[in-house]
Nucleic acid binder design. Structure first.
Lengths: 168, 168
DNA sequence: TTTGAAATGTTATAATATTACATTTAGAGC
DNA sequence: GCTCTAAATGTAATATTATAACATTTCAAA
């Protein structure tokens, strides 16, 4: 039986079904990628990454700040925003523009921008990487003479689990 | 010769090439759609829509506020945000999430959410409506058991005109 | 012509993010 | 191990974006 209870399907955002493991892997990968790139994944940056990975729900900067302050009295907005800048820059987290929030990425080694599915009921978000979507975006840009530099795809709705448990 | 000068291609955001006409049409359509829906397109709302249509560059709320204040001394943030809420709600403008800015929509009669191409060089944005992109998004959601409620696509890069005029 | 709902006015404040400059820290080269 | 420097972090202030809450005005239907 999964931690989600009896018949409910698992979180759509957590493929393994075991989030602790998922988080451990993400942090290990971040260490590994940082070492490979010669980056300094400092205590602070690592801690922010950990706080973000604590759930599959995108986290807001000031919520991170509040959590950081529990253990780090002099944390201030720049403390958090700098860590986020680093983590986003290196692909360890993505920013969800429509929520002003951040979520961990489990494939930082691949240079990409996320496409997200966000459940408006449980708040979880999952990253997609659908080659068809990407192809359609590239083709559209090309047709219009546009040189594509970045793309943002954020889809909202209700996930299977929420639809099932809430009769819709 | 277009208003864009000698050999330059026209603005990718302004299909007609005559923005005055484009803006006139948009306002006329807004009047028409409002009448059909029994909405009150008040002077204030209409004026905000006009200010947004003044360019194909997404406009920020506080820039609109500053402009409004020239002619309307007691304009305040809620003045602008309420007008924007109305205009977005009715589809007369779209919000560009990645820019915290707003841009006019010329097809308010069609219920949809925009897909945008945004030139990072000239700042102009154009709405797309590529059925392939939409199909890929819907299919992805369906596959994952997701009930899609809204979708957001914002593509950034450099438009043909900017690439040409700036040697890249 | 009343009257009630919608729109707008007004003040205050919340939420998100950045600037600018000071200080500390970690690691490269000695 | 030291020293120097660049990167990271500390700190204070402030900019930007958005909303809450309540008062007043306006418009059109009854």
């Amino acid at each position: 039986m999964s931690r989600h209870g009896q018949a409910a399907p698992p979180s759509f955002a957590c493929e393994r079904g075991d989030h602790a493991e998922c988080m451990r892997d993400a942090l290990a990968k971040a260490e590994q990628v940082s070492a490979a790139r010669g980056l300094r994944l400092t205590r602070l940056r690592r801690r922010v990454l950990e706080l973000i990975w604590a759930s599959h729900t995108p986290v807001k900067a000031y919520d991170l700040l509040e959590q950081l302050r529990q253990e780090h009295a002099n944390a201030a907005p720049p403390t958090v925003y700098r860590a986020l800048d680093f983590l986003v820059q290196e692909g360890f987290v993505h920013r969800i523009e429509s929520l002003n929030a951040y979520i961990g990425c489990d494939i930082p080694e691949r240079d990409h921008q996320g496409q997200f599915l966000i459940c408006e009921s449980c708040g979880e978000a999952a990253e997609l990487s659908n080659p068809e979507i990407e192809a359609a975006l590239l083709e559209t840009a090309r047709t219009l003479g546009f040189r594509l530099e970045s793309s943002l795809v954020e889809l909202k709705g209700r996930c299977a689990r929420c639809r099932q448990s809430q009769s819709a």
